[in-house]
Each structure stands twice: as C-alpha cells, then as structure tokens.
Simulated scan of single mutants.
Amino acid sequence: MKNRLTESQLERKNSFIKVNGFWNDVWDELLYLDEDFFEVYSNFSSVPWKTGVLEPKIKELINIAISSSPTHLSVPATRIHIQNALRLGATNEEIVEVLKVVSILGMHTCAVGVPLMVEEFDNHDLSTEVRLTERQKQLKAEFIEQMGYWHDFRDVLLQMDESFFEAYSNFLTAPWKTGILEPKVIEFIYIAIDASTTHLFEKGIQVHLKNALKYGATKEEILEVYQLTSSLGFHSLLMGIPILVEELKKQNR
C-alpha cells in the first residue's frame, strides 16, 4: 500500500503522524480511496492533539474508554488506543482501571429501568413506598460518602434487593478505592461514555459533570473530553474500510 500513495498522500500521512504520534494501516487505505475525506478526518480528529489541555496519556485513556464501552465495543479502536496509551507511558494497572470503570455502564439498565417500573406500578395503584431498614440506610450512607451522589432509583433497588445493591455498590466503588486513577480522570471517563453517540445518557452526564467540577475540572478539559468522544463516528471507517478492501481484492478490483 505504501508504494501506491502519491507524494501528496504521503505528505498528509506524515503530517498526521507528526501531530498524533501514531498511524494505522487502515488510514493508508483511506488515503488511497478518498484523499480529500482523509484530510477532513485528520483535521477533525487532530484538534484535541493540537490545542488540547489534557495530557496525551489521559487522552488515550479516555479513548480506550470510548472504544471499549459496552455500547460500542470496537475491537480495532480499542487495540489502537491501548497501543498508544502504552507508548505514552500508561501502566497496565491504569488501563485495567479504565476497563473496570467502563464496565459499570451495564447498571444503566437499572438507572433507566427502575424509575419506569416504579412509574408503572404507581399508575396501577401498587405501592412503591420506600422504607429502608437500618442496614439499608447504612449502605446508602456508605455509598454517598464514597461516590458523593445519590438517585431515588437506588432507594428502590436497595429496598427490593439489598444483596444486589451491595454487590453493585462494591462493583461501582472498586476503582475509587485503589487510587490508580485520579478522581477527576474517572469522572472524565464517565462523562465520555455517557455522552458518546451510542449512549447519550443525559442524567449520567449531569451527575458526572458536577463531580468533575468538584474535583477541579475546567470547562476547557470537559470540552476536550467531548471533542475526543465526538470522533467515535470515525470508527465506522476503521471497521468498514478493511472489509471493503478485502471484498475488492476478491473481485480483483
């Protein structure tokens, strides 16, 4: 593929590497197939790397989160960003912590589903009044102390299934207890995966924006998280172009 690139395409490739510090063979194919759109992609995705305020390693940890989120699960993108994070000095412990933080996203099933369940029960005159036991009140207080927030659906969850709530609480708070990632970075990860186009969980974004501000985040840092997350759409190219190239080869085109 390298021999097929024109001087103009090689110049654009070298410019991308200079700004972003890495390359992937898929972009050779994109350059060959549509040089003009590669320039569009390059200009868009490079903005946080040219003018950004977050350190490069943190950018890549956020990119890992976006790529590996349960609502996305892009193997090619996750591999690229793990490689980049390691190159930029991330430890295996930090990367594992990112994956642990992201894996809690499955609990949004309850965050969305439990309030809807309560609403339907109330519509049918079935009582959903919450009365917590002393043990449940203690679990609630421990959660709030650790996480700094609460939502009413957790009262219902706690009353209905104390053991499940406790397991969930331990799952959610595990990364906070290790200290491997600083709290502000964890909140950036939550903001990124909640704001991704594959999720767009507004309540979660609001909660984690408040927490990020509490930990000292600036509006410039948060905007950069959004900028990184907005590049998720380009994963369609990362996934689709190799398939296209493979099929073209089968047809000798």
Rank of each mutant, 00 (worst) to 15 (best):
S163D: 10
F44A: 05
W49T: 04
N252V: 11
I80S: 13
N252S: 11
E119G: 09
A141D: 15
A65Q: 00
K57A: 03
T6R: 07
N3D: 07
N170H: 06
A174W: 01
F171E: 11
Q159S: 13
G216Y: 03
E93H: 00
T218E: 01
L5Y: 10
E162S: 08
T71Y: 04
P56Q: 14
G204R: 12
T71H: 03
F38K: 01
P175V: 02
E246N: 13
L61F: 09
S169P: 01
A85E: 11
N14A: 11
L30S: 04
E60C: 07
V130I: 13
T218L: 00
P76W: 06
V47M: 05
R131W: 06
Q251A: 11
T71W: 04
S230I: 01
S74N: 01
I66Y: 03
T51A: 10
Y168M: 15
L126W: 15
A77G: 03
S67A: 14
I193W: 04
D28M: 09
R253H: 14
W27D: 14
N14H: 13
L244R: 05
E182L: 07
Y190V: 06
L244W: 10
K18N: 15
S67Y: 01
T51V: 10
L181Y: 06
M160I: 07
A141E: 14
I66V: 11
M1D: 13
Q146H: 07
N14F: 14
E93R: 03
V207S: 07
A90T: 02
A217E: 09
A217S: 01
I17V: 14
H108D: 14
K219C: 01
E221G: 12
E60Q: 05
V47E: 05
E247K: 06
G216W: 08
P56A: 10
Q206S: 02
S68Y: 04
Q251R: 12
Q206H: 12
D28Q: 08
A192I: 01
S103D: 06
I62W: 00
T51H: 12
L5G: 12
H124D: 15
I95S: 05
C110P: 08
F201E: 10
P70L: 06
K203E: 10
K59V: 12
